[in-house]
């Protein structure tokens, strides 16, 4: 039913670049008779428009990393897609990540690229930076060696890097420069969709803003869409157009960034925002009680109910669906009362 609502609204606007429908991805493990199923992504539906930055917020082991791994089609057992679909739309051509693997492989890097958390995972420490560009991007661009080199150099210049970095080894560069490089690497083919996993977490505070500005700038120039994950709410505040809040494998709230921060509709979001410390404010912050849910044995009904100050009996038995409300969507039986509380 939910998908139907979305389809209708989607057909009115421009076609979304990514459509995730009823996605369930579980870790299924079996060790010496101990069978475990961890529901890391549990019935998530979302769409991402063109020219949009979508931030996914959530805490450790909420399933946010599993969600973007599943969207990227980069999952390995024991994580498996149990149900649902992930569909990209690249230039009017629909691509189902889990049904059209060969086409998906061809689209990688050209249409869909990644910015990884640790830059050293992408840059080989014993090879010069230029080889990384060659390995990742050359075959997708259909250019001669000379043209390719020229393109890479002008691209680097545009993101504020001296083209001479191509001749250096990763360890000769600073952390901020390396992260710039990985962003350069991910954007050199001008992809329509970029997936980023904690793009600023490993960085020093002083370069964080520059890297965020770089991501935003590249995105605006190319008109591409970005989905990124981070637990740092200030990063979402700085660059996301819309935010999705993940709790215990489920999307519990989604909406335009400003609205989520100023008028959170889910009690979990409300708490998350209220607990953020600010310089210049020493008023006592109250921490959330209870313990984060165990995804191998999640609470019944609404998964937030054991920690929720607004929980009623209904929350314990029935799982609220993610329904449109105000400018976004929210999954809470008492959504209307959160603002009042």
């Amino acid at each position: 039913m939910l998908a139907a609502v979305e389809n209708k609204s989607a057909s009115v606007e421009a076609k979304p670049v990514l459509r995730v429908e009823g996605l369930k991805a579980y870790y299924q493990m079996n060790y010496f008779g101990v069978r475990r199923e961890v529901r890391a992504v549990d019935d998530v539906s979302l769409t991402i428009k063109r020219n949009e930055i979508y931030g996914i917020a959530g805490e450790s082991s909420s399933g946010k990393s599993s969600l973007i791994k599943t969207i990227a089609g980069a999952i390995t057992p024991p994580l498996r897609v149990v149900e649902g679909s992930v569909k990209f739309d690249f230039g009017g051509k629909e691509l189902d990540v889990y049904a059209q693997r060969p086409a998906m492989k061809a689209a990688r890097w050209k249409h869909l690229s990644y910015v990884m958390q640790g830059s050293m995972n992408v840059l080989n420490p014993v090879r010069k930076v230029k080889h990384a560009f060659h390995d990742f991007a050359f075959k997708h661009m259909g250019l001669s060696e000379g043209e390719f080199r020229a393109r890479v150099e002008s691209h680097l210049q545009r993101i504020g890097l001296d083209p001479r970095v191509l001749e250096s080894y990763p360890h000769q560069l600073s952390g901020g420069m390396r992260q710039r490089l990985t962003i350069g690497l991910a954007t050199v083919c001008e992809p329509e969709f970029i997936i980023a996993d904690e793009p600023t977490t490993a960085l020093d505070v002083l370069v964080q803003q520059d890297v965020l500005a770089l991501i935003k700038g590249v995105q605006q120039r190319m008109g591409s869409s970005i989905i990124f994950v981070t637990h740092d709410m200030t990063v979402h505040a700085a660059i996301a157009d819309r935010i999705g809040i993940v709790y215990a494998g489920r999307l519990v709230e989604e909406g335009p960034t400003l609205d989520v921060f100023q008028r959170p509709q889910h009690p979990y979001t409300a708490h998350l925002i209220a607990s953020l410390p600010r310089i210049g404010d020493t008023r006592k912050r109250v921490a959330l009680g209870g313990k984060p849910p165990n995804l191998a044995d999640p609470p019944s009904g609404c998964r937030f109910h054991p920690r929720c100050p607004l929980a009623v009996d209904k929350c314990k038995s029935e799982n609220p669906a993610l329904l449109p409300r105000n400018s976004g969507r929210v999954a809470c039986w008492r959504a209307g009362e959160v603002e009042a509380a």
């Binding site: 505070v205 200030t234 505040a237 700085a238 310089i279």
Partner: peptide
């Protein structure tokens, strides 16, 4: 001072303005 101004406030209006300012500076 640099460290202090590198801290993004948890406020979309202010934080996104800082990023836009950075973008214009480049």
């Amino acid at each position: 001072r640099a460290l202090r101004s590198a801290v993004l406030p948890p406020d979309p209006v202010v934080a996104s303005a800082i990023i836009r300012e950075k973008l214009r500076a480049v």
